[in-house]
Amino acid sequence: MAELIAKTPCDGLLPITSETVSLTELTPSAITSFMPYKGREKAASTALKKACGMALPGPNEASGTEGARAIWSGRGQCFILDTGVPADLATEGAITDQSDAWAVMQLAGAGAQDVLARLVPVDLRLAAFKPGQTVRTEMQHMMASITRSGDTSFDIMVMRSFAKTAVHDLHEAMKSVAARG
């Protein structure tokens, strides 16, 4: 049988750096979407907290730390990153394995928010977009999930098939910001 080699979505594309801003790939061990069934939101949140250590995040919220994170990802949905979701949570909501479906990147460093300002129609300045906040929005023409993950770092998710385009667009914006000092 052929030996298959697993490649990450940004294999051969990252990391890149431009002056103070760097773009690196994150490779969460798992990405699972969790969608509580109608009327089960509270029970689902309790069950998730028991199983993975964090409650269901509300709109525009992310919770948890490296090792297990929950990121709100749309109406009635969140993504659980880095930790598996026990199958018995399926009594409270729909669970879908999305581990290979997303390219996950971290844009970090002084000026990261200026890079995003060129690509995203939401105010992501450090003063307006705090750690623990997340948005579903567009980055150029791509659907994206962007989460403020640290002092000057943003975690960006796009569908895996957009990995190369996303890296290209981010790189162009990084160079453009760097050129202006």
């Binding site: 709109p59 525009n60 109406r75 129609p121 939401v122 948005v135 579903r136 929005t137 567009e138």
Partner: peptide, 10 residues
């Protein structure tokens, strides 16, 4: 109602 005020292009 969920995300807040957003640009028309979204």
């Amino acid at each position: 109602p969920l995300c807040g005020e957003r640009d028309r292009r979204e």
